[in-house]
């Protein structure tokens, strides 16, 4: 295909995506009285006070810490259990493998709302309620099947002859797996982290149900600010901007693998 200019509709869609984000940043740079007082396309008295409020108020910055804590635990647990399983699915036939693989995927179809109550009781019973671990494990419901699915796709694209060759060369399995095999699917690992992060970071319903005061994540603090005090749109917008930053950082790190990841990983 000859090089063509990008159709105008794509730019229109880009603007459609950017405008709400621009407005969020715009709001985050204004004091609440300016926001409510006068309508301004460009902030008239830009200020960073909203951000200062978030970085100095422990309710806000601890909530950020809590969110990052359970997202990291979740990503770590998901990768640890999913890597061996994905390898098994991609390399061996075993009793019930297809059924198991399909059953894992059906968990992706379970509405989180269905699991609220049992999760609450289960994690209260084992004493994990209101800790980052409860949210991290609960999110495994979505991230583990997803990780297995994505990693299996990437691992299957590595020829099985490589395993054989490493064995014939006299490498121990551990050496082969960690030093040769995993580096080969580096982009797969990156994409998996992207999706674990994506599903754990953005989720509100389960995180809200499984935390009370100690482990309250940022998303919950934001919704509670909305319902409780008189709204401070500026601070809310600033918090919103800050929750988007980690996402953009992750996209930046995996940017070269994005298209490939979506194709191979089958999401």
């Amino acid at each position: 295909m000859a090089e063509k200019r990008v159709h105008w509709s794509v730019y229109a869609f880009g603007v459609y995506l950017l405008l709400p984000l621009y407005w969020l940043v715009n709001m985050s740079l204004q004091r609440n009285q300016d926001i409510v007082g006068e309508f301004a396309i460009v902030p008239r008295n830009p200020t960073l006070t909203n951000y200062a409020e978030i970085f100095t108020n422990p309710v806000w910055y601890e909530a950020f810490g809590n969110s990052l804590a359970y997202v990291s635990i979740n990503t770590l647990v998901s990768l640890t259990v999913a890597i061996p399983a994905a390898y098994a699915f991609s390399r061996y036939r075993f009793l019930g493998d297809r059924q198991l693989f399909f059953w894992l995927l059906t968990n992706r179809m379970a509405p989180p709302a269905v699991f609220l109550l049992p999760f609450f009781q289960l994690y209260s019973a084992v004493g994990l309620f209101d800790t980052p671990f409860a949210v991290a494990f609960a999110h495994c419901l979505f991230t583990v099947p997803l990780s297995v699915w994505i990693l299996e796709g990437f691992m299957s694209s590595v020829p099985r002859e490589i395993d054989e060759m490493a064995r014939l060369d006299g490498h121990a399995f551990g050496y082969f797996f960690f030093r040769l095999f995993l580096p080969l699917i580096k982009s797969g690992l990156g994409v998996t982290v992207f999706f674990c992060f994506m599903f754990s970071w953005v989720e509100l319903l389960i995180a809200r149900t499984l935390t009370a005061s100690e482990a309250k994540p940022i998303a919950v603090v934001m919704t509670r600010t909305v319902s409780a005090s008189g709204l401070d749109w500026g601070v809310l917008a600033a918090a919103g901007v800050l929750t988007i930053v980690p996402g953009i950082a992750v996209v930046w790190f995996v940017r070269r693998h994005l298209a490939r990841g979506f194709a191979l990983g089958r999401v």
Partner: peptide, 25 residues
């Protein structure tokens, strides 16, 4: 490539923040 990055941004915004963004917008 730039557009692919822009496309992935909405997918990584926390769902309640999506609500907040549109509420403000």
């Amino acid at each position: 490539t730039g557009f692919l990055i822009l496309l992935s941004v909405p997918l990584l915004v926390p769902w309640n923040v999506v609500g907040t963004i549109w509420q403000i917008y």
